[in-house]
Amino acid sequence: MMKHIVLLQFKESHTPEEIKHAFALLEGLGKTIPQIKSFKYGKYDSNEGMNHGFDYGFEIEFDNAADRDIYLFHPDHVAVAGQVIPMLRHGTDSLVAFDYDPAKGL
Rank of each mutant, 00 (worst) to 15 (best):
M1E: 04
M2P: 02
M2S: 01
M2Y: 08
M2C: 01
K3F: 09
K3H: 11
L7V: 01
L7P: 01
L8V: 11
Q9S: 14
Q9V: 09
Q9E: 14
K11C: 08
K11A: 13
E12N: 11
S13A: 04
H14A: 07
T15P: 10
E18S: 07
I19E: 03
I19R: 08
K20W: 06
K20N: 15
H21F: 11
A22F: 01
F23M: 06
F23P: 08
A24D: 15
L25Q: 07
L26H: 05
L26W: 00
E27A: 13
L29W: 01
G30Q: 14
G30F: 05
K31W: 04
T32Y: 03
I33C: 03
P34Y: 01
P34N: 04
I36W: 09
I36Q: 07
I36T: 07
K37G: 03
F39V: 07
K40S: 15
Y41V: 05
Y41A: 14
K43V: 12
Y44P: 02
D45V: 02
S46Q: 06
S46M: 06
E48C: 12
G49W: 14
M50F: 09
M50C: 05
N51R: 10
N51S: 12
N51I: 09
N51W: 07
H52P: 00
G53F: 06
F54C: 10
G57I: 04
G57C: 12
F58P: 02
I60K: 00
E61S: 13
E61G: 09
E61L: 08
E61V: 11
E61C: 13
E61P: 01
E61A: 12
F62Q: 08
F62M: 07
N64M: 06
N64T: 05
A65P: 00
A65N: 11
A66E: 15
D67C: 00
D67L: 04
D67R: 02
D67Q: 06
D69N: 11
D69R: 13
D69P: 00
Y71H: 07
L72T: 12
H74K: 03
P75D: 08
D76Q: 04
H77Q: 08
H77I: 04
A79Q: 11
V80G: 03
A81F: 02
A81P: 09
G82S: 11
G82L: 10
G82R: 05
G82V: 10
V84E: 05
I85M: 01
I85S: 01
I85T: 06
I85D: 02
P86K: 00
M87Q: 13
R89L: 15
T92P: 04
D93G: 09
S94W: 10
V96H: 00
V96C: 03
D99V: 13
P102Y: 08
P102F: 12
